[in-house]
């Protein structure tokens, strides 16, 4: 497993820094979203320091308390926020303009469980802790059995978020439901409320906890895991931020997963890397959602297990040991 992409180390290349800065400015200028903590301070600084180089190019910014201010473009600097606070802020906002979706093609799943191990490695999970778990399903006695990889459905009307007393689990603008394990009080109300059994709990000290002691918490990866708090599938929010596909999607050898952006109406297959129209894929293959009657509005779609070219095999691997 390459582990580098998970750590946001201070020695990023100068290039990367600049590009973040540019993106940041662009976001501010275009959307005017109220995240510019620095803007107000800059504005007051601007008044007192009369003698200063000016470009004459005035930018209009929205301060955090909702005021519109004008600042010379030369004076705008990216906010100095690092570490947990930055993750926390970005992690709560989501990636602007995106609406992530996943499509799972059940006709291709052979229960290889590669998605599961990639996921468990990335999120420091024990063998019995699943963000993604492939279930052996049979809807009714007369119908064919099939494999169904099941993760958090990132519901648009998420019951887990509604019941959380402290806003430790929340819905972002890009559709992802995340967990903040620095906030979670471990009441497990969200587990009771989730109809898809998507959530897991750190009942004891997480895997290799001792070795991750001074790792900085990344809310988009939910590591290091913490005892007494919740975890679940995060749609690999950290990978999406880097423009990559989720861990499970890339790890599947059988082309089961498509992942992409609903706004662009495009999803990419993790195995073949082929990008297709989301609406067409769902229309042509009779895509459906899991238990839509519950009103949770999942962001994961399934394509029915039809025309399989391999026989269904009951799972043979042994179940994890008692914990």
């Amino acid at each position: 497993m390459e582990d580098n992409h998970t750590s946001h180390s201070p020695d990023e290349s100068e290039d990367q820094k600049n590009s973040t800065r540019r993106n940041f400015l662009k976001n501010l200028g275009l959307a005017g979203v109220g995240v510019a903590t620095g803007a107000a301070a800059l504005y007051s600084g601007h008044i007192f320091e009369a003698k200063k180089e000016v470009s004459g190019d005035q930018k209009v910014l929205l301060t955090q308390d909702g005021k519109l201010v004008q600042v010379d473009s030369l004076e705008i600097k990216a906010m100095e926020k690092t570490g947990v606070a930055l993750h926390e802020m970005e992690g709560r906002e989501g990636i602007p303009g995106r609406r992530w979706v996943m499509v799972t093609d059940l006709s291709k799943c052979r229960n290889a469980r590669k998605c599961i191990s990639a996921c468990q490695d990335a999120h420091q999970l024990r063998p019995e802790q699943y963000h993604m778990n492939t279930l052996q399903m049979q809807d009714t006695p007369g119908t064919a059995p099939y494999n169904m990889p099941k993760n958090c459905q990132h519901c648009d009307n998420p019951p887990c978020v509604a019941v959380c007393p402290v806003d430790a689990t929340y819905k972002r603008q890009d559709g992802i439901v995340l967990i903040d394990n620095v906030r979670c009080i471990g009441c497990r109300f969200c587990m009771a409320a989730c109809p898809y059994s998507a959530r897991i709990f750190n009942w004891i000290e997480p895997k290799d906890a001792a070795t991750h002691l001074d790792q900085e918490y990344n809310v988009e990866l939910n590591v290091p895991q913490k005892v007494g708090t919740i975890s679940k599938c995060l749609f690999s929010a950290d990978r999406l931020r880097e423009g990559k596909l989720p861990y499970c999607v890339e790890a599947c050898p059988n082309g089961v997963y498509y992942f992409g952006d609903e706004n662009e109406d495009a999803v990419t297959n993790g195995t073949t890397k082929e990008t297709v129209r989301l609406s067409k894929l769902l229309r042509d293959n009779a895509g459906y959602q899991l238990m839509p009657e519950l009103g949770t509005k999942p962001r994961v779609y399934f394509l029915p297990p039809k025309n399989r070219l391999f026989p269904f095999e009951a799972a043979t691997e042994t179940t994890p040991e008692k914990v």
């Binding site: 007393p165 402290v166 806003d167 906030r183 009080i185 471990g186 708090t229």
Partner: peptide, 23 residues
């Protein structure tokens, strides 16, 4: 006794969300 993180009890008052029946 049922909380995974009893030391965070005060969060219920600090960050309490009125939507949650726990509150």
């Amino acid at each position: 006794s049922d909380m995974g993180r009893p030391e965070r009890l005060a969060y219920v008052f600090l960050y309490g969300r009125p939507q949650s029946p726990i509150l």
